[in-house]
Every structure is written in C-alpha cells, then in structure tokens.
Write a protein that binds this DNA or RNA. Structure first.
Length: 413
DNA sequence: TCTGGGGTCCTAGGACCC
DNA sequence: TCTGGGGTCCTAGGACCC
C-alpha cells in the first residue's frame, strides 16, 4: 500500500517575511507590492484573510478591504532559499521527493514504517523537523494517492496533519465540493453545477461514459479522482518525474498602457535577455519563440515561430520577438509584453561549422555578461547589439553608479 | 474588484507525409 | 474525376495551479 505525503507551507511568503521582521507577526500582512500598484496579492497573512483578502486579489481591492494592512514587495530570493531548506529536510525523510512548487512537495514514504513509524507518527516527525530546520509552519496530508494527500493537507491547514486510512478515500471525499479537486476551477465547477453535480460524491455516482462524453478526457479522469485515484493528467506521473522545464518565459506589465514603440521594443529586448540567460543556466536550447501582447481590455494575443535551429542566444530571441511584434502590432496601447521559449532540448541540434564557431564565441560573451549581472544586478550589462536602433533607450535604464559595460559581439556578426 | 508572473496540460485545426 | 486514414508537427487559445 502506497504512503504518500503532501506537504504545504502555511502562508509561506508571509511567514518568511515574519522571520526577517518579527514585528509583522499577528498583523494583517499582504505580500505583492504597494496598494497603488498594478498587481495582485501573492500571499496574505491569516489576520489579513479575516478581512477578506486572499491571493490573486488585485492589490487595490485588498487595500479597500484592509487599509491598515502592511503591504510588502516580497523577496523572491529569500523564498527560494527557504524552499531549498524545506527540500533538504524532506530529503532526509525520503529519497522520493518532488517539489511541486516553491512551497509544496510530494513525498513517497512507502515502506518506511520500520524507520519512521506509522504515517501519523512519521508526519509528526516531519512537521517537527520542518519547524526545527526552517522556523516555519506547514500542513501535511497523508494518504494512498497524491490526489487525496493534496486535498488532505488543504483540509489540515493551518499547521495541521491529516491522514486518511486506506479504504476510506471515497468516504472522505464524498461530502466535499467538486471545486476542491485540483484541476477543477471556476469554469469546470460551473459546468458540473449545470448538470447538478456539486459534491465529489455526486461525481462518484455517475457513469464514466457519461462524464467522458460530456467533458472529454478530463471527464474520465474526474471519475477516477472522485474515487481518490491518481487517474489521468499530472497526478498520474511518478513522484520525482518532473525535471527539465518545458518552457521558459518572462513578461512585464507596464505601470501604464503604452503605445510607445521604443518602450515596448526595449522591454521585449530585456525579456529576451532574461529568457536567454535562463536557457544558458539550464543548459537548454529553444526552437520556438513566442511573443505575447495584452491590451487594455485584457484580451491576450500570442504569435509563435519555430526556428530551423535551436538557440540560447539573446540576440536571436530578440530579433525573433521583435519581428513577431512588428508584424502583428496594430498600434493599439499595450498593457503587457512577454517572450517565451519552448520546444526545449538539452542539445543545440545540428549546426554548420560557421554557426558552431560563432555560437561558441557568443556563449562566452554572454556567460561573461551573466556573471557581471550576478555581481552588479540585472541592469548592469546590456548587449551592444541590443543597443542598436530602437533598443537605444536601454542605456538610460542603467541606474547611476553601476558599472555599465558593453559586451562586444564577436566578429562576423 | 480591474485583474502579476511563472508555469503545465489540453484541444482543435491545418499542413504535410505516407 | 469528388476524395481514406493515420501520424506528426506547428500554432493559437484557454483552463488551471501556486
């Protein structure tokens, strides 16, 4: 019988902020930015939640609900550090660990009973170890499947442990709202409601063929989920299977919508640099480049192009995203721009000799630039090629006092 | 209420090939 | 000469998650 844990950190970003500033404890805290900024709540403390503030809520709305809350920008590097600490504690409990996101993980503890005791006891030990190792609270769900363990940890919040005995899965799930099933969002919930399905128990009673015919592949998976099985989709994979990313992207929402071609294109250049850098960090090559635009009415537009040869280079990403932009932009003010790289591979694929030597030189130059950015910050270095023509305003983005350095492109470009 | 940024997976149509 | 079927790749959009 499988023993699966799902561990979820409680109010993770807020709790990390409290470690660095204990005066925040007990106060309504909102992580995400200033209340007059465009943006949404990344995390809210339990005190803030009592005022109706929750994650994904626009910051301006959060302010209306709770003007006395402390609004903080957030510190992504701190969260990554603490996520890493959590990961280390988990690895001391099981070799089969998968971080599902920055603040949650799955563990397979099957066969560990002699070492750690029965699931509830093991969960207690883990809970204490996380506290000791990070100073943070978490909630743990234990069950025979990933799905049930995940729903359990949610039910156990905050700072609790819940174990569902083998064989009790369906009875545990039956009274819950269908929305509690991971993957059932607003739209699916509405669709299910429209055919009279509200509880997971209603779902379990239905004919599988009906669900498949009505809701497609997903419907079939739902039938299994209602019984507590890891049926279909992402839950089916073995724990620890997910490794290399399938896409890498960066996007930016302007403080105010803009129709300034120079501003838009220089932002695209910056997004391309950031994507290129992450490709090199991961040792991945991309064949597909995608441009994303979002307009005032939130309508979102994407255009992609697949290259004949994979790339890691900022210049190629820039040229491609700019070309897509110039071909498709109608001149309407833009709210957001983004650049995504996909069709990723750990190898560059076939290149002719000339391209190979050019590629080696470029990679050297870019890796040097990456190191400078590590030292002096993202805006310290900009590609000389990125400064040509419309990208010229990048120069002015360099904050005073930082060593602005141009990296010369290799000859022949 | 006026909506971030980083992802994953699914669907569906068209091109193209055998 | 009235029109098959399957496989794979590419593209666009959308639901969903943290």
């Amino acid at each position: 019988m499988r023993v699966i844990f799902h561990l979820d950190m409680d109010a993770f970003f807020v709790s990390v902020e409290e470690l660095f500033d204990p005066s925040l404890k007990g106060k309504p805290v909102v992580v995400g930015g200033r209340p007059d900024q465009r943006g949404v709540v990344s995390a809210a403390s339990y005190a803030a939640r009592r005022f109706g503030v929750h994650s994904a809520m626009p910051l301006r709305t959060a302010y209306k609900h709770c003007p006395q809350a402390v609004f903080v920008e957030g510190h992504p590097t701190r969260y990554r550090d603490y996520s890493h600490k959590v990961h280390q504690v988990l690895q001391s409990f099981s070799p089969v660990v998968e971080m599902a996101s920055i603040d949650e993980a799955y563990l397979d503890l099957t066969g560990s009973e002699r070492l750690l005791g029965p699931p509830l006891q093991a969960a207690n030990k883990l809970h204490e170890a996380i506290q000791a190792g990070t100073g943070l609270n978490c909630s743990i769900g234990a069950a025979t499947s990933r799905l049930v363990a995940k729903i359990c940890s949610d039910q156990a919040k905050p700072n609790g442990i819940l174990w569902i005995l083998p064989g009790m899965e369906a009875r545990f799930l039956a009274p819950l709202e269908v929305r509690r099933i991971p993957g059932v969002g607003k739209v699916m919930e509405k669709n299910l409601h429209s055919v009279g399905i509200r509880k997971v128990g209603d779902l379990a009673l239905l004919d599988e063929a009906f669900l498949e015919q009505r809701f497609g592949k997903w419907g079939l998976a739902l039938a299994g989920k209602a019984k507590g099985l890891d049926a279909g989709g992402w839950f089916d994979a073995e724990i620890g299977a997910g490794d290399d990313p399938k896409s890498i992207s960066h996007e930016h929402t302007f403080d105010q919508d803009t129709a300034d071609r120079g501003q838009i294109e220089s932002t695209l250049a910056r997004m391309s640099e950031m994507v290129g850098r992450r490709l090199r960090e991961h040792g991945l090559w991309a064949r597909t480049v995608q441009l994303k635009l979002r307009y005032k009415d939130f309508s979102t537009f994407t255009r992609a192009h697949t290259l004949t040869e994979a790339t890691q280079l900022d210049t190629v990403l820039m040229a491609e995203s700019r070309r897509l932009f110039q071909r498709n932009w109608t001149g309407k003010p833009v709210r957001l721009v983004g650049v995504q790289a996909s069709s990723l591979d750990g190898e560059p694929g076939q290149m002719n000799l000339l391209e190979q030597s050019s590629h080696v030189q470029w990679t050297k130059a870019l890796t040097a630039a990456d190191k400078l950015r590590d030292k002096f910050g993202e805006s310290a270095v900009s590609l000389a090629a990125g400064m040509r023509g419309r990208f010229r305003e990048r120069v002015h983005e360099n904050p005073a006092g930082l060593p602005g350095k141009k990296i010369k492109p290799p000859p022949g470009e």
